[in-house]
């Protein structure tokens, strides 16, 4: 049951759109030369035969990723050659003071030749390292770490680039570095054991204060002096003697490091 009024309105609508499309096409600058007598058709980019006819209108009939059939419709493929990326590699300038040069023998040099790597001395012995301070040993350890990293890097790069011989020299050098590191640990372990023994001795030493408060080391003769002063506090007659002895103590109160080696031995004899 179509209402005549609605029918006419829909027809008018169709006519109106067709007219408006015509005016739109005419107003646009034409890319392709269109015949002027052509009437406007419904705009579609797909060719009429593009739609595949299958028995059940299933768009994906026969398309199987397992059988690698690919899509069943023709795809819009252009014959234009694809643009190729430019053969351009930016040139990077590496800083001369870059830290990663530490993995190489020197700045800009990939690795030492086997001859250069074979020129090395001997490892540090424990006896030599016993004379060194902790700061020296620590610095030497970190130098050894850097050297081992450098040698490992050279080994990896030589085998990667198939450069030839040289692994023997590098590994022999690495062994020497490892021996030095072992000697450092040996010396530090010795020092630790010595410190432990010294601590046990200090516990029984009246001159040494391990509580962490006040002077750690007070020589015994100073302690005796203080005790004497406390005892003679109220005694007026002994004050004069005390003052004289105080003067003597002041003479003794020089910097302990400047006391010659003979004096502590005398103190020890008194004890």
């Amino acid at each position: 049951m179509t209402n005549p009024t609605t029918f006419t309105s829909s027809v008018r609508c169709v006519v109106h759109t067709a007219r408006s499309q015509r005016t739109l096409l005419a107003s646009r600058p034409s890319i392709f030369p269109l015949p002027t007598t052509q009437s406007a058709a419904s705009f579609s980019t797909s060719s009429p035969h593009q739609k595949r006819k299958t028995r059940d209108n299933n768009r994906l009939r026969g398309v199987s990723p397992l059988r690698r059939t690919g899509p069943r419709e023709p795809l819009s493929v252009s014959y234009d050659p694809l643009p190729k990326p430019a053969d351009y590699k930016p040139k990077i300038t590496v800083d001369k003071d870059h830290g990663l040069w530490g993995f190489f023998p020197e700045q800009g040099k990939l690795m030492n030749t086997p001859e250069e790597d074979g020129e090395y001395g001997r490892a540090w012995t424990a006896n030599e390292l016993r004379q060194k301070s902790w700061e020296d040993l620590h610095a030497l350890w970190w130098a050894c770490c850097r050297e081992r990293n450098r040698l490992a890097t050279a080994n990896a790069e030589r085998s990667r680039a198939k450069m030839g011989f040289g692994e023997y020299e590098t590994n022999a050098r690495d062994d020497v570095v490892k021996r030095t590191m072992k000697a450092i640990k040996h010396v530090l372990t010795e020092r630790y054991y010595l410190w432990e023994d010294a601590y046990e001795l200090a516990k029984q030493d009246p001159e040494i204060n391990l509580s962490g408060k006040g002077e750690a080391y007070t020589p015994l003769y100073e302690q005796q002096e203080e005790d004497f002063l406390v005892k003679e506090d109220g005694d007026v007659t002994a004050a004069k003697e005390a003052s004289t002895s105080q003067k003597a103590a002041a003479d003794n109160l020089v910097d302990p490091s400047t006391i010659p080696a003979s004096k502590p031995s005398e103190q020890a004899q008194k004890l």
């Binding site: 990077i92 590496v94 800083d95 870059h98 990663l100 190489f104 800009g108 040099k109 990939l110 030749t113 086997p114 001859e115 030589r158 680039a161 198939k162 450069m163 030839g164 011989f165 040289g166």
Partner: peptide
């Protein structure tokens, strides 16, 4: 990832010191 770029030095063209032929 570094803040300052680093490029490895080239492999030397003459590998005679490494006795490449014998290798």
């Amino acid at each position: 990832e570094l803040t300052r770029p680093f490029v490895w030095p080239e492999v030397p063209a003459d590998l005679q010191p490494w006795n490449k032929d014998l290798w």
